[in-house]
């Protein structure tokens, strides 16, 4: 039974949007500023900020180790936007900083000719797996809101759950057992975003 949802605070993010969405779905959001992480059924790595400063904050508070422990215990983690990037090994945004390395791969910058960067728009997310409870009430392709300059290059191809095209086709959602992460903002994508967020929470319930 999921009740309390911990939202990691990197000190630079908009936590209200995601808290609000969690609250609307009937769960209790808890802002986490420091370790240890207590009494959380789910952890969210939210969206706004810089890879380097976010990782430094996680390292200095010991939250990095706590998140890794949470993951290895099989407890559910959801990453959103910057959150999906932090779970990889490294990012071009901060070359000397190590990521959480929950999955292997690296985060790279868009180099799209003729298209503005950051990628700020509603874009089509194409889901690879169609008949799954995660997509209940959603079409195989839906618009979600993106705002980012970097995207993940995933080494473990089997965890790629959805892709999106912006000059290049990139992985916009991963699912690896108890880890789900999206490059788009679930909490800012209208009713479809809330629907997918709700489905993800239900998927977590069954873990």
């Amino acid at each position: 039974m999921i009740r309390k949802v911990g939202i990691i605070n990197y000190g630079a993010g908009n936590l209200m949007s995601i808290s609000k969405a969690i609250d609307v779905l009937g769960y209790q959001p808890l802002i986490i500023n420091s370790s240890p992480i207590k009494n959380c059924d789910v952890l969210i790595l939210p969206g706004v900020g810089n890879f380097g400063s976010a990782m430094k904050m996680l390292n200095s508070t010991g939250l990095d180790e706590e998140i890794k422990k949470f993951f290895s215990l099989g407890k559910p983690i959801l990453g959103i936007c910057l959150g999906i990037q932090l779970v990889f090994n490294s990012s071009e945004e901060a070359k000397d900083v190590k990521g959480l390395s929950l999955v292997s791969g690296k985060v790279v910058k868009f180099s799209t000719r003729g298209l503005p960067v950051p990628h700020i728009c509603w874009n089509i997310v194409r889901f690879k797996n169609k008949n799954t409870a995660l997509l209940a009430g959603l079409r195989d392709e839906e618009y979600f809101y993106f705002v980012h300059s970097y995207y993940p290059l995933v080494s473990e191809k089997n965890i790629v759950f959805a892709t999106t095209c912006y000059g290049v086709k990139f992985c916009s959602m991963i699912v690896k057992n108890n880890l789900v992460a999206t490059q788009f903002h679930l909490e800012k994508s209208g009713d479809k975003g809330l629907k997918l967020l709700s489905n993800i929470m239900k998927y977590f319930e069954l873990l």
């Binding site: 630079a12 908009n14 706004v48 900020g49 810089n50 400063s53 300059s149």
Partner: peptide
């Protein structure tokens, strides 16, 4: 931009 990210 450094503190909050350019996207913000």
């Amino acid at each position: 931009a450094k503190m909050f990210g350019s996207q913000c």
